[in-house]
């Protein structure tokens, strides 16, 4: 078994299958802690974890904060509006402040692709990408993979269908890298206007219809459709989007009977997913949330290696 050697987690594209397995394996004992009455271990006492969020995301931030607290780290939140980025408040200046504060791990959510790469180059602290623009959202993909592995035992050989706005989805990108590295087949499906160019080079198979994508799938991952994409002219109407790409019970019957239905949240019920499917027996959407904390604990633990910065 290997050890973790990276300073940062910036994306899944450059991770090996072994590294992904290590994270998922480490999340298993972390999940056991979540099942205890006293959800706390002393592992990261004295460490400071900073969540630096340039986009509002209560659920991801809370998940990281709980993960830090359960491991006894001190956590500090800095939330900044996306507009401050545009106003030219330098990420690097903020980073230097964080370093001066003695942050050991910085969790960055940023509206622009590559911002965590810039931050990681600037500071000695470990950087975890909590979603950057339309680039990657590695912790979401890891919790998705953890959830699927827990239910299916194995990721290799599974067929995963990702449906929706692939173009703007960092979740889709990270899941494509992660699942394909672990030996699963990934299908992507969505409006042609929201399909990134040459996506098949990532290893994903492009399906033109949702029926094609769903047939025989072991995992169905629905993406949130941002309603403002309609104003940008990327699809004609919510009605037509739901008609062509919405998941309902009838369509779900094309997938394997034991298929898992997932959604990174927050859901547009009745648009990309019908309520009866979102709350149905195949849905593991609520478990995704619990597993998110376990996976993030695993990452905080692994990335806190290498001794204290001043030790």
């Amino acid at each position: 078994m290997m050890n973790w050697k990276r300073k940062d987690l910036l994306g899944l594209k450059d991770l090996s299958a072994e590294e992904i397995k290590l994270i998922l394996d480490t999340a298993v004992p972390m999940k056991e802690i979540l099942g205890r009455r006293i959800k706390k271990v002393p592992t990261l006492r004295g460490r400071t974890v900073v969540t630096l969020f340039y986009e509002p995301s209560t659920r991801t931030r809370t998940s990281f904060e709980l993960a830090a607290k359960y491991l006894s780290a001190d956590s500090v939140n800095i939330s900044t509006s996306a507009s401050s980025v545009v106003k030219g408040e330098s990420l690097k200046d903020t980073a230097r402040t964080l370093a001066a504060m003695g942050a050991d791990v910085v969790i960055l959510r940023h509206p622009m692709a590559g911002a965590p790469v810039l931050l990681a180059r600037t500071i000695r602290a470990a950087v975890i990408n909590a979603g950057d623009g339309t680039h990657e959202h590695p912790t979401q993909a890891l919790l998705d993979m953890f959830t699927v592995r827990e239910k299916k035992g194995e990721l290799a050989g599974l067929t995963v269908a990702i449906i929706g706005d692939i173009l703007h989805s960092r979740v889709a990108r990270s899941n494509i890298w992660g699942f394909t590295k672990m030996g699963a087949r990934v299908r992507v499906c969505g409006p042609a206007t929201m399909m990134p160019p040459e996506i098949e080079v990532t290893g994903a198979q492009v399906c033109l219809s949702i029926e094609e994508a769903l047939t025989g799938a072991d995992v169905v991952m629905m993406l949130r459709i941002q309603l403002e994409r309609q104003q940008q002219g990327l699809f004609p109407s919510i009605r037509e989007y739901a008609r062509l790409f919405g998941l309902n019970r009838e369509r779900l019957s094309l997938a394997r009977p034991d298929a898992l239905v997932m959604h990174p949240g927050p859901m547009n019920r009745g648009v990309e997913i019908s309520p009866e499917v979102a709350d149905g027996v195949n849905s593991v959407i609520n478990e995704q949330v619990t597993n998110g904390v376990a996976v993030r604990m695993a990452l905080l633990y692994l990335l806190s290696g290498g001794g204290m910065p001043d030790a």
Partner: peptide, 14 residues
């Protein structure tokens, strides 16, 4: 706009 813009998640210029 091409494979690399897709991978990097950066808006492309076709």
């Amino acid at each position: 706009e091409g494979y690399m813009s897709t991978v990097l998640g950066l808006p492309g210029i076709p």
